[in-house]
Amino acid sequence: MSLEQLSRDKIESARRDAALWREEFSIFKADEKYVTRRQLTKFLTLTSLAMFAGNFWILTKSWLRKMTVYPARAVARVGEIPVGGVKLFKYPGPNDQCIMVRTSEDQYVAYSQKCTHLSCAVYYAREKNQLICPCHNGVFSLKDGSVIQGPPPRPLPRVVLDRRGSDLIAIRMQDMPES
C-alpha cells in the first residue's frame, strides 16, 4: 500500500467518523434556541401570573378594608385641651399614633400622625395652622389633611370624631381622597 493510498484511507475514515459523530450527537443550533425561547416565554407567563396575583391581593385588601369594623373609643374629654392645643392618642390599634387639634371652641380634628411619605410623625405648627412633617418638609392642611406641599403622595387618614356628652369618641378612620 502506497503512502498516498494510506493517507486517502485515513481522510475517508475521518469523514466517516465525523458523519457518525454528527449522527450520534445531533446538536442543532435551532434546538438550542427553542429551549431558551420556551424558558423565557414560561418565565414571562409566570411573571404575568404574579402580576395578576398582585392585582387580586389589592382587590382582597380593598374588600377587607371595606369590611373593617373600627372600635368606638373615647379619646378625649371636651375642654380637655385648649383652643390651638394638641393631644396625641392611639387609634384604632395600640401602635397607631394619632394627633388631635382643637381648632376652635367647639371644633376638633384628628388625623393619623404617620406622614404618608415615609411614616415620620407629623406635628402641629400653630403659627401656620398646618400639620408638618419635619423629615422632608411635607405640609398637610389642618382642615382636611390634604397635602399642601412636599413629597407626601397622599393626604393624612382622618379620624372621624363624634361628641357624646362630654366625651370625644373616635368612630373610624377615613382615607381622604386626593384633591
Partner: peptide, 28 residues
C-alpha cells in the same frame, strides 16, 4: 389608587389583569 383611598378602579384592574394573564397564557 388603592393607597390613595380610591377603591373604584381596584375591581376593573383585577379583571383586566386576569384577561391579560389569560392572553399571556394563551400565547405560551
Amino acid at each position: 389608587s388603592y393607597l390613595a383611598g380610591f377603591d373604584d378602579p381596584v375591581l376593573p384592574g383585577a379583571i383586566i389583569s386576569g384577561i391579560l394573564f389569560a392572553g399571556c397564557f394563551g400565547l405560551y
